[in-house]
Amino acid sequence: MKKILLSLIISLSIWLPLSAADSPTGKEIMEIQKNQHKIKTEVTKYDMILVDKKGRERKRVISIYVKDVGNSLNKTMLKFSEPADIAGVGLLTWEQGEDKDDDQWLYLPAQRQVKRISSSGKKNQFMGTDLAFEDLRPENLQANNYKVLGEEKIGDDLCWKIEATPATAKEKKDSGYSKRIIWIRKDIYFSVKTEFYDKRGNLAKLGTNEDFENIEGNIWRSKKGTTESLKRKTKTIMATTSRDTKGSLEESFFSQNNLKKD
């Protein structure tokens, strides 16, 4: 009997961790998603297409510089180079993590001044696009709760369906979303679709990623991301035109002085 009991305990002790590994939690999936695709430095150039409700398109050219500075924190610089009326506009973000406000500065060439801006306005629309400031920053895993709702196929790809809700009082106040439903591809741990729900619980925006490319190992990127505002009936398409993941950027690059430069 003792032997049977011992065998049962041993079997259970082996089975339980395996079971947990087979069904990771929402937070574990999001952690893998955030950490697996990390690159030390990355410079990506996009054609940003703004589509208005009549279907008219406007093109902007934007470069995004990202550096992983450790502790799951990034420094990011974003610069517009076209069209002429927004060329030179730049946004610098130093992530602070946990529940702290990020440091953010905006440079508007017409004013020739780098201005600190409030990152508490992260729910706000970014430069007339369908993206909010908070959509442009990496996922803050400490500030959200994640729950696996199940598995679903998007196209041919089997995905985890995860519900993300603000976890802290600050995030609840600062975020423009009451919840997000995120579909993460099981094979590559990359989000393919996100539904954004406003504070009233209505579906407000839809984000999709497509045209995936393998950068190296298990690091993936999407070459085309679309965010659609369902109420405004507008769309912002971010089409990648070039990507450099092999170069190096010093942390000192992410400075207010560099934000002013073309």
């Binding site: 406000d101 201005k115 600190r116 801006i117 409030s118 990152s119 508490s120």
Partner: peptide, 11 residues
Amino acid sequence: FSTTLKGAVVY
């Protein structure tokens, strides 16, 4: 000086 306070930039 310049800082943020309750969603505003104070300077």
